[in-house]
């Protein structure tokens, strides 16, 4: 799993690539715990080809933690397989999901101002 982070318009964007399963989920977990991220984080999933419940759990954990401090995790560009995992577990209800990275960053930017 490749995890890259950059900050644009004071919004942290985490770009993931590869498989997010029980093997790689701990990487994302420790990455999110050890990085200084903006309150609103955009998770770019365009290159995630597979997601299992462990990955889901980490993403959900990140979102719940961000929400405690008024932020959020916004999801961008998930493929159909990944979307189905979110759908099947009804976790779609928990997230703002964008099909475009720029739109997600813009949302994270404006949403931050309203906090």
């Amino acid at each position: 799993m490749i995890i890259r982070e950059n900050t644009r318009d004071s919004v942290s964007t985490i770009t993931l690539a590869g498989t997010l399963d029980a093997l790689s989920a701990p990487e994302l977990q420790s990455f999110s715990e050890n990085s200084a991220l903006s309150p609103n984080v955009v998770l770019d999933l365009s290159d995630v080809d597979f997601l299992d419940s462990s990955g889901l759990r980490v993403i959900r954990g990140m979102a719940l933690k961000k929400r405690e401090s008024g932020g959020d995790v916004i999801l961008a560009c998930m493929n159909d397989d990944v979307r189905k995992v979110f759908n099947n577990t009804q976790l779609v209800r928990l997230f703002h999901i964008y099909d475009d990275l720029d739109a997600a960053v813009t949302y994270a930017e404006t949403n931050k101002k309203s906090i």
Binding site: D52, S53, S54, L56, R57, R60, G61, L64, V85, N88, T89, Q90, L91, R93, L94
Partner: peptide
């Protein structure tokens, strides 16, 4: 059973997913 999606105690998604799939 589907765990509460908004509360902390984690897990339970795996078996639920299998049943769904």
């Amino acid at each position: 059973t589907l765990p509460d999606i908004e509360k902390y105690p984690e897990g339970g998604f795996g078996l639920f997913l299998i049943r769904q799939l």
